[in-house]
Write a protein that binds this DNA or RNA. Structure first.
Length: 271
DNA sequence: ACGAAGCCCTGCAAGC
DNA sequence: TGCTTGCAGGGCTTCG
């Protein structure tokens, strides 16, 4: 399940292989992802050179002016850089063939991911322009989060997983950050003090940074752009640990469902 | 403007 | 053992 740390890991893995390289060809074997891959992608990218790669939330933006490729990994997608003659396997939906003799390959079993094209400023794309602040940027502050949460009556867990509140926090890191901040996942977002919002911001930043350092979390089959799995799953304190002992208080980690998603928490440590 | 539900898809697990 | 059925999950979209 790629969340922000996994997308960042992917970006860092593929960046040195893509920068400055020219696209020879784009091969699409399965265009039916979250949205159809634009049929014009080969014509539009052929001969263009990758000049800038960045991440916005969980979106990867691969700039090859005048176009930018927008990639979202959904919940099962991964990108890898492979030699030209590598035979495609199951769910290898797209290859972007580069002049350097390698290709960028998208694998996505569940096809919840997306490959889109946009012109001009990619941050103004319909899917990107209304996103909330980057959690690792200077705009993500306790006071800012507090202000946003004033008008939200949903649970804090669902609030921080909402990309209009803050981007990149998915199910795993939401549980981990709330545990770290001592906040119960069902607490109403508008019933959290500014002080605790500050704690939560710090917890989110901390858990995301720690996960990036470990190369992300590999639960099923995530691999970064360099083909290596992440190791943060070994440091998860509550996620996936229901019925096990809380590492902090010795109580029992609980599991509940919120909006169809599993939430792990410690009833003793989180209020 | 917000919240809840629906939908896309496959792999895996449980049940028969 | 093998088939069927159910369900999770990110997040956009639709509906209320």
């Amino acid at each position: 399940m790629p969340e922000l740390p996994e997308v960042e890991t992917t970006l860092r893995g593929i960046l040195p292989h893509l920068m400055g390289q020219t696209v020879l060809q784009v091969v699409v074997r399965q265009p039916k992802l979250r949205w159809p891959i634009p049929a014009r992608i080969n014509n539009e990218l052929k001969g263009q050179r990758f000049t800038q790669l960045q991440r916005r939330g969980k979106y990867l933006l691969l700039r090859a002016a005048p176009s930018t490729v927008i990639v979202h990994l959904g919940m099962s997608g991964s990108l890898s850089v492979v030699p030209l003659n590598t035979a495609p396997g199951t769910h290898d939906h797209v290859d972007i063939v580069l002049s350097s003799g390698v290709m960028l390959r998208l694998n996505d079993p569940r096809r919840f991911g997306a490959v889109l094209l946009t012109q001009g400023d990619p941050l103004q794309h319909r899917l990107l322009r209304n996103l909330g602040p980057e959690p690792l940027g200077k705009d993500f502050t306790g006071s800012g989060l507090y202000r946003l949460l004033r008008k939200r009556s949903c649970s804090i867990k669902q609030a921080i997983m909402n990309s209009h509140v803050v981007v990149g926090v998915g199910n795993i890191y939401a549980s981990e950050a709330l545990f770290s901040a001592g906040i119960h996942p069902t607490r109403a977002a508008n019933r959290i003090s500014q002080k605790r919002c500050q704690l939560l911001v710090e917890a989110i930043v901390e858990v995301l940074c720690a996960a990036i350092k470990k190369g992300g979390t590999t639960l099923r089959d995530f691999v970064g752009g360099d083909g290596k799995p992440g190791y943060f799953q070994n440091q998860l304190l509550v996620y996936g640990r229901d019925k096990q002992l809380c590492t902090r208080c010795g109580g029992t980690v609980g599991l509940i469902r919120q909006g169809g998603r599993a939430s792990y928490y410690c009833p003793g440590c989180q209020r």
